[in-house]
Design a protein around this nucleic acid. Structure first.
Lengths: 338, 338
DNA sequence: GCTGCTTTTGCACAGGTATGCAAAACGGTG
DNA sequence: CACCGTTTTGCATACCTGTGCAAAAGCAGC
């Protein structure tokens, strides 16, 4: 009952030609006469033949598989990016082998090893870093890596982020112009480049206006910690505005302030996020936030990756894409900023 | 500069043994002496050797890759399920090749063909159906398929859903007990089994209490259509409660009613959803909803799939898992239901 | 029909691994 | 040491395809 797999040899026999002829018919750009092509395709269709991609990769050395490592999908930014990435790569004939790396460090390395076992043509990590050792491994194996939404000093790795420093600076200007006097910041995880860059940009933006942040707490990109931090900021530091390190946390902050504490956003406290995930535009939140242009970030990621797959000698690229501030109603809007 | 890939032959040469010995050392359950194992592993470590999974699958006929087809990731239920699926399969040594099939029908078939090209060991589709033809193809190729959160009459396909009929009936009872007189229903897409089953269960639950739905409109599982439908229900049919076909649409409905129309939920209109995605528990929504136990659904999906991979003669299974009604504050709570 | 040129085809091999089978090594007993 | 039963090892082959090379076929012109 287990139907034997139909191979190119079966097709060749049926069509009365050689196996290599069959192979050529299914290899774009190979030399085949029209008559041969028709004969072979007819036989193939009849038998239901399709080339075995795995066997093909074994000989070409290209699997057309891209490994994707992602930490968690709770933050809507990542499923959104995943969907775009998958579509973009599918269009180029590549496919995504997906791995969850819940932890950082240890777990990630094991996961990347498994990816390499699958002979992937390239690796994308979403908001996940790599150890030096594993970066060296990928480099030695000739497999290009692109960090998506995460930076790392390593020169062997490409990276695509938004311009976090400039973006956060823009937010600082916006809040200062809004007349806020006591401004707090809930950082993303300070162990991540995005978290650090946004904090740095924000501080420098404030400093330019001669302002100090009233209070800065680490939110670790987690809802619960962000909510706790927000409460502390209001109760202990009397902030009138908070820049939250990403939208995902900002929603928790808004919930905590409005629902649990009975405050008004933005009348009592202005909230600004970072990412502009789809949720930010929902009527319940109307979050003012800095947009990470995920469409363009994905484009850049894909082209940086494919470029290095096609020409391995191309040096890795570090790309930072600028994004606009999307003004909604979670923060007081200064004159002339509408 | 392109480092040659290190193969089992290289390791064999270095360790002074045969290639088959190396293979056996890396094949669990093969006959190898302790000394041999140590010698080979030492050489392998030194060279950085890891078995080529693709070459292995070519000969074993098992790729340890599972194909996952998913329509869209905007509804939080799916990223959540994807994360669980990936973790569960990873634990069993399987990995996920992911495909987006935005459209239905035509597009899905092409995508599944591509999956088959990759010699996947099994296929999971999330909220995506299959044509007869492609189901036959998978069956002929001996590749088990599990429909996740979607039913289909086809006997060759396994399926795992929540018990949509019973769940929706529970919701009907709840709303009737709550004293609602004019109850509306925004269906999920009526072209899907989940949409139809929920509608049927809901209608039968109402009927049992001698109640007719005041109005039923198709929301197509889309936010915009659900919002429009909700407005129509209130303005034209004066409903005092709406059962919305899934949480994803329910959030849009709540936004429309509360923010755009200035109504109170649940004082003016009670809202009940279906899924219990994480968002439903957020303070801004506090959505009363029927929980689809995604943890157990994923477990069932994985075991149904692996079971058929291990023993191809096992018949496909149709599994419907019961879920509890999670009572929060988006709907009036009848006496004794707390 | 013959020559020279271009296109098409077949042959044979390679890519990296797992596995059946037979030969070799091992270990214990008399 | 010879014997026999059990492990362990190596040899050879298979999995399915792409591709370099040489042979064959096609074609145009005389």
């Amino acid at each position: 009952m287990a139907e034997r797999k139909v191979t190119s040899l079966d097709v060749a026999a049926k069509a009365g030609v050689s196996q290599s002829a069959v192979s050529r018919v299914f290899t774009p750009g190979a030399s085949v006469s029209k008559k041969m092509s028709e004969k072979v395709r007819a036989a193939a269709d009849e038998l239901g033949y399709r080339p075995n991609v795995l066997a093909r990769s074994l000989i070409t050395g290209r699997s057309r598989i891209i490994g994707l490592v992602v930490a968690y999908l709770e933050n809507q930014f990542y499923p959104d990016a995943l969907e775009r990435l998958s579509n973009a790569l599918q269009e180029q004939g590549y496919h995504i082998l997906i791995f969850m790396a819940s932890g950082t460090g240890e777990g990630v390395d094991r996961v990347i090893d498994e990816l390499l076992d699958y002979q992937v043509d390239g690796i994308i990590t979403a908001s996940v870093g790599m150890t030096d050792e594993i970066a060296a491994r990928c480099d030695a194996a000739g497999i290009p890596v692109v960090l998506f939404n995460r930076g790392q000093e390593d020169l062997r790795l490409s990276e695509v982020t938004s311009d976090n420093v400039a973006g956060a600076r823009k937010i600082a200007e916006f809040l200062v112009a809004g007349g806020h006097k006591r401004i707090g910041h809930i950082t993303g995880w300070t162990g991540s480049s995005t978290g650090r860059d946004r904090e740095a940009g924000f501080r420098s933006g404030l400093a330019e206006a001669g302002v100090e942040p009233a209070i800065v707490l680490d939110g670790h990109y987690r809802r619960a910690e962000a909510a706790t931090a927000a409460r502390a900021m209001v109760e202990q530091a009397q902030v009138d505005a908070i820049f939250v390190g990403n939208d995902h946390m900002a929603f928790a902050v808004m919930d905590e302030l409005r629902v649990s504490m009975g405050l008004s956003v933005p009348d009592d406290v202005s909230i600004v996020g970072y990412d502009d995930v789809p949720l930010a535009a929902w009527a319940s939140y109307q979050l003012t936030t800095l947009r990470q242009p995920s469409g363009r970030m994905v484009e850049a990621t894909v082209s940086a990756l494919l470029e290095r797959i096609a020409a391995p000698d191309t040096p890795p690229r570090k790309i930072a894409i600028d994004g606009p501030l999307i003004i909604r109603s979670s923060a007081h809007v200064p004159e002339g900023w509408a």
